[in-house]
């Protein structure tokens, strides 16, 4: 087994644990590269099907290419797609810096979907290497009734034994990609032939390395227009993946505050 085989086997194990232990369960599909890999892994785990709903929490501000991708692949992949909306930015915590405040809409939209569908498990595609606070996450991360992430009081997690919900109203965030790195994602996409929105590939000297809302995501300088070129670029790059995400950089703790409140 090589590195990718090992990551795949571990993610499949995690997805099968989630499917067995958490009901109702749903997967978040942000339409980005990581969540496409996650849908793919679910199809591997469940022999060609995704046996739970896939949710897109729609901020209404994604790129048109992303909506087109969603419509095409939700059909091709036979996904049980649930769409959720987000409240307007005016309803968000005004003490947050502007981009973080805009991103907080997604937290509120997600919370509403969890409430509506009474979800016990939500599968999300975050990775440890993306951001310092995500590096502290558990594979099964319990959230109380308020959806808050209690970073100071996380349960022990070892030997593939995961937390289970033990109180009414709590849910578990499941993170099957936690150990993957950005370059693993790309190598796996190349190996498996997983489709992607073409915003990830360079046009006119720019490409998106991470995709979020149109107004708070910016492209990076790049000439990488194929998978092989993107991989080659990542092997030598020295900037971080989320450098184009405005809410990560507004203040030292803006992103941590978002995550404690339930952001992904």
């Amino acid at each position: 087994m090589d590195h990718l085989d090992q990551l795949e086997a571990q993610s499949v194990f995690i997805l099968r644990e989630a499917y067995r232990k958490l009901k109702p369960l749903a997967m978040l599909w942000s339409l980005g590269k990581d969540s496409n890999v996650m849908v793919w892994l679910a199809k591997k785990a469940f022999l060609g099907r995704v046996p739970f709903p896939v949710m897109h929490v729609d901020t209404g501000k994604k790129f048109p290419e992303m909506y087109a991708f969603r419509d095409e692949y939700s059909k091709k992949w036979e996904l049980d797609l649930l769409l959720g909306t987000c409240p307007p930015v005016e309803e968000m915590d005004p003490s947050l810096p502007p981009a973080a405040r805009s991103a907080a809409r997604k937290t509120a939209g997600l919370a509403a979907m969890i409430e509506t569908h009474k979800l016990q498990g939500v599968i999300a595609g975050i990775r440890r290497d993306e951001q310092g606070t995500r590096a502290k996450e558990r594979v099964f991360s319990p959230r109380g009734a308020s959806h808050k992430w209690d970073i100071r009081n996380q349960p022990p997690e070892f030997w593939d034994q995961y937390a289970t919900p033990h109180e009414e109203g709590m849910h578990i965030r499941v993170h099957p990609l936690l150990s993957w790195r950005e370059i693993d994602i790309w190598r796996y996409i190349e190996r498996e032939g997983i489709p992607l929105v073409d915003l990830y590939f360079a046009k006119n000297g720019k490409r998106y390395r991470s995709l979020g809302d149109q107004d708070i995501t910016s492209p990076v300088e790049s000439n990488a227009s194929t998978l092989a070129e993107v991989i080659a670029e990542l092997e030598t790059t020295r900037t971080s993946e989320r450098s184009g995400r405005a809410m990560d950089h507004e203040s030292e703790d803006a992103f941590e505050r978002l995550r404690v409140a339930g952001y992904l």
Partner: peptide, 8 residues
Amino acid sequence: MTASLPSS
């Protein structure tokens, strides 16, 4: 901006 290693 990147060294272009062949994918092979």
